[in-house]
Amino acid sequence: MSQMDLPPYATPGQRLWHYTFKVICGLIFFFLIAPILVIIPLSFNALDFFTFTPGMLAFDPEAYSLKHYRDFFNSPDWQQALANSIRIAPSATILSVVLGTLAAVGLSQDHVPFRRTIMAILISPMIVPLIISAAGMYFFYARIGLQGTYLGVVLAHAALGIPFVIITVTATLVGFDRSLTRASASLGAGLLRTFFKVQMPLILPGVISGGLFAFITSFDEVVVVLFVGSANQKTLPWQMFIGLREQISPTILAVATVLVAVSILLLTVVELLRRRSERLRGLSPG
C-alpha cells in the first residue's frame, strides 16, 4: 500500500485534507502544463489573435487553419533561422559529447588529482549567468576574430552543453562495474578495444542523454547567440526573441508548437534511455 492511499480508518478531517491536497497538486500540475498546452490550439487560430475566438470555442472548423504554419514554412527569415539552428546545434553537440565523455571517463578513475576543482570548472558554464558568459564571450571572441562567425557560436554552445554531458555520463559511470574492464584487459583487449567494446555500450545511454541535453541547450539558447552571433547566424530562438520583443506575430505560436513537439520527442527518448540504463546497471527493478 502506498503512502498516498487513504487508510480505511481515516477521520473525516483527514479525508478532507487528503482530497484538498490532491486538488492542490492537481492545480500545480495544471499550472506547470497548461501554459505549454494552451498554445497548441491557439497556433491553429484562423485569425491573428492571441486568444480563443468565439468560433474556436464553438469548434467551428472555419475558425481553425494552418495559416501560421504556412507563414513559418514560407517566410525566408524563419527558414534561415531554422536552417541555422539545424546547422549549429548538432555541431556543438558533437563537440560537447566527444570532449565531455572523454573527460567524464577520466574523472571517474581513482586517484584523479584536483578532481573537485576540475569538476567545478567544467560545470561552471551551467552556473554562471548566461548574460555574463555572453558578455565575456562577446568581448573575447571579438578580440580573436570569432565574433559573428559560425565557429564562434558553435564553440560557445559546446562550452554551454559540456556540463550536461559531464553530469549525465558521470552519473552512468557511478554504477559501472570496474571488474568488467579488468576482465576485458585480462582477456587481451587493448585500452581502446576495452573502451569501445565494453565500457562504451554500457555508458551509451548516459552519453546519448547527455548529448540530447547538450543539443537542447544549444537549440534553445538565445542570449549567447545574440551576442556572439551576427544576423547571419540567427537561430530559431533568436528569431523568436526578436519577434516577441518587437511585434509579436502569431507565427511564433506555430513555431512554439513545433518546438514543443521536438521537446516531447527528446523527452521520450531520454526517459526510455534512462530506464534502459537503470535496468542494465540493475539500479531499478522497474
Binding site: V38, I39, M240, F241, L253, S263, I264
Partner: peptide, 10 residues
C-alpha cells in the same frame, strides 16, 4: 525540456 522561449511566449 520545453524551450525557454516557448514558455515565455506562452
Amino acid at each position: 525540456w520545453t524551450s525557454l522561449l516557448v514558455r515565455t511566449s506562452a
